[in-house]
Structures are given as C-alpha cells and as structure tokens.
Amino acid sequence: MSPLGPSSGRRPDGAAFVIAAILAAAGTVLIAEGARIPARGGYAGVGPGDIPVLVGWGLVALALWHVVAGLRGGRGPGRVRQDAVAILWITGGLVLQNLLLWQAGFAIASGIVFAFTAAAFGRRNFAVSLPAGILLALLVYGIFDRLLKLNLPAGPLETLVFGG
C-alpha cells in the first residue's frame, strides 16, 4: 500500500505512538500467556509456551521501532479525511445482521447488510435498497440452502417463500 498523503514535514507522528502502544500491549499479553503455559516441551525441548514468548518479544521490538520512527516523524497525518458515518453504516449493518440472523432469518438480516452498505455509499433510499437486498438474499438462500444444501438460518420469510 502506497503512502496515503504527502509527507508533512518532520514532526513526531502521533499515530506511530498509538500503534507502538498497541503492539507493546499485545506483545506483553503473548509473553504473559507463554509464561503461564506449563513447560511441556517433551523430547522437542520447545513447548507450546515458547513460541508465544518469541512472537511477543518480536512485537515488543516492533513497538520500539515504531517509537523511534515516530520520533523521527516524517509520515505525518497527511491523509484524506475519513467519512465516519459511512463506517458506522457498514459496521451497524453487520452488527444488526449478527443480532437478527437467528430470529429474522438469513434473507432479512442479509438484506439489512446490503441496504446499510448501500447507505454507506450514499444510497439512503431504503424503500428501494432494503427490498432489493432482501430479494437478492432470498435468491441466494434458495440456491445455497435449498439446491446446494448449505444450512442457512431460516426465518419467517424463508418459510413463507420456500416452505418449512
């Protein structure tokens, strides 16, 4: 992936420190987990706890590298402004799908994902996008569940259209 924006001078890069903190935290978790696991290397000498410790230290080293790179700066926040509403639409659609899937069935839940994603891209006319998404999902349900026997959660709509 190429740089997202032009370099904006030599000032410390805040994002690098946040990322460094996350990496260091993840590394610490791995090292702690590795230490918790009883040493059962057996004949190999290398047991289930050793690799987590190794990867954990790798993450800590990368965190330090980020700190150094962040102090040097250079790759500042020159990126394009992000549309947070679009992110919320898509993640909201996925959360709703997860919540509704086993009650409302595959078609309605996945229709919501479709319509909410379309909304993230600017189509907020749910009177069109929701039925379109549900219809597409019903078609997918028909092909995959009924013809190909992939078990998809059925709700009232599936039962109505395809029978129990």
């Binding site: 898509i90 659609g93 996925l94 799908q97 899937l101 595959f106 996945s110 994902v113 479709f114 319509a115 994603t117 379309a118 909304a119 993230a120 891209f121 600017g122 189509r123 996008s129 379109a132 998404g133 597409l136 999902a137 997918v140 995959f144 992939l150 078990n151 998809l152 959660p153």
Partner: peptide
C-alpha cells in the same frame, strides 16, 4: 454502481461464514 456492488460483496462475504 458502487452502493449495489459493495452491498453485494458484503452479502456474499458474510454468506461463507454463515454457511
């Protein structure tokens, strides 16, 4: 159009996991 294209992609992306 991108709204429909990505709507479809997300629908299929979740289908694999749901199935």
């Amino acid at each position: 159009p991108r709204p429909w294209l990505y709507g479809g992609i997300l629908l299929f992306a979740t289908l694999g996991t749901i199935g």
